[in-house]
Design a protein around this nucleic acid. Structure first.
Lengths: 251, 251
DNA sequence: GCCACACTTCGGCGGTAACCGAAGTGTGAC
DNA sequence: GTCACACTTCGGTTACCGCCGAAGTGTGGC
């Protein structure tokens, strides 16, 4: 962060003000609040304060700032003030930053019930992760809906050993059956489909716009349900049946 | 930036450390240096210092930090120390941040020679912009190599009035003729193809991995040449001929 | 009316980190 | 050797901004 307001150097005239924007995400508390908001649901400010482990007054100030730049909108519900993420490109930016970010060491949740439910099925930003996400990715690849492209040998940097993800020959059919309109997904300005390595299983799950749509589909049809204030997901009986029928997955 | 080292809140355990990573980009000087480095060329530290308008000693410190986290590598050349961007996902992150960033007001370069050459042809991060970039985008769309998808009416947010960009029916043929391997381009982890609105012309030019490849092709064959220490590009006579022949463009 | 609760605003504190100049290191030219 | 030059390291300064608690506002319940 600048220690002094500087004149902007020539190179950035007419360009985007990257520094000022990155500063929004550069605070742990704000980043935690935004991460919570990535799920697309409205959250009370007090809840965001708890997520970020800061005083309510501080959280309120952060929300005011995020609102002033148009990232979130707030809506009074009784005496609560619900916060909703409305600038969807924020998701893209956070995903891109996350790709080059080191992982926060996971130490606090060892061996208990909570950890097991997170390993089973959870949200990773706004897409499905955990065993559920990993198995879905594998199934979609098996049935030819997704294709992973091997990295060419002359590539300079190998990103966690993963190639790119594109649609396979059966994509249209598979996603149509899931009521997902691929053209509409493409219209989101974020990375269309990408693989994200799961910290619980070390195998890839589907991220990007397509991953988000898939998660949306799973939630709308109540194949999975949110659990209170964690990112763990509960797979419903209907979800279990759908997984077996459509993806040959038995968790 | 944190004013105090905080315990990371629960929500981010196992997740990426977004705040610490965003902090790298959150300083105007570092952002300017990185923007300069986006062109993929090696730059001397003194040059970066000039770009960012800071003391050499400060620039040296920034480079040391960027090197310690693996974003750049340095290589001694005589008494100079050349800096090269090696973590390519940094480009993606900066592009994603730039998309949601306000523009730096462009005031200092009105009406002079420099401005005109920037309007003609220049780099926007690592792809072609200015009249050249805008006309190329239009030509590629005309000949069916690119296709822009209209935004569906129910979309919540319109991003600068632009839909997504995908390949058109003639893509394979057109890009093969340019010696661009689409599968290889797909392997980069960044957004495959996207439209970026040009600040000089208000019309889109091609960004993303494909835009970068195109720029690379134009440079390798010397259709365009860098000018010293600005992002303006000079179109060579060979480039002019190629533009007329392959794209029916006459600048 | 009264209280409880969710949030907002304000004042003041404190620590991080960006900055610079000066001194130190290493390379190249002569 | 001597000087010039590109960079590195160090010490000290400064200012931004994230933080909190306290006081203020507005809504809902009784």
């Amino acid at each position: 962060m600048p220690s002094r307001k500087r004149a902007y150097p020539f190179v950035s005239a007419g360009d985007a003000d990257i520094a000022r924007t990155a500063a929004i995400f550069a605070d742990p508390a704000r980043a935690a609040m935004l991460t919570t908001l990535l799920d697309g649901q409205p959250h009370a400010i007090s809840e965001l304060a708890r997520c970020a482990d800061i005083a309510l007054s501080t959280a309120s100030e952060h929300v005011a700032r995020l609102r002033s730049i148009g990232y979130v909108e707030t809506q009074r519900r009784g005496r609560m003030n619900l916060v909703l993420l409305v600038q969807h490109d924020v998701v893209t930016a956070m995903e891109a930053i996350a790709r080059i970010a080191p992982r926060v060491p996971v130490s606090s949740l060892r061996g208990d019930e909570r950890r097991r439910s997170l390993e089973r099925a959870r949200l990773c930003y706004d897409h499905l992760a955990g065993e559920l996400g990993v198995e879905l990715f594998a199934s979609l690849t098996r049935q030819g809906a997704l294709r992973t492209i091997a990295i060419p040998k002359n590539s300079r940097k190998v990103h966690a050993g993963l190639g790119a993800v594109t649609l396979g020959p059966r994509a249209k059919c598979t996603f149509k059956a899931l009521d997902i309109d691929l053209d509409e997904v493409r219209c989101s300005h974020r990375q269309f489909a990408t693989a994200c390595v799961d910290w619980t299983h070390g195998r890839p799950h589907l991220a990007g716009a397509l991953g988000s749509s898939l998660r949306d589909r799973f939630e709308r049809t109540r194949w999975v349900e949110r659990t209170h204030e964690t990112r763990a997901l509960r797979i419903t009986p209907a979800g279990r049946r759908a997984l077996a029928r459509l993806f040959a997955i038995d968790l």
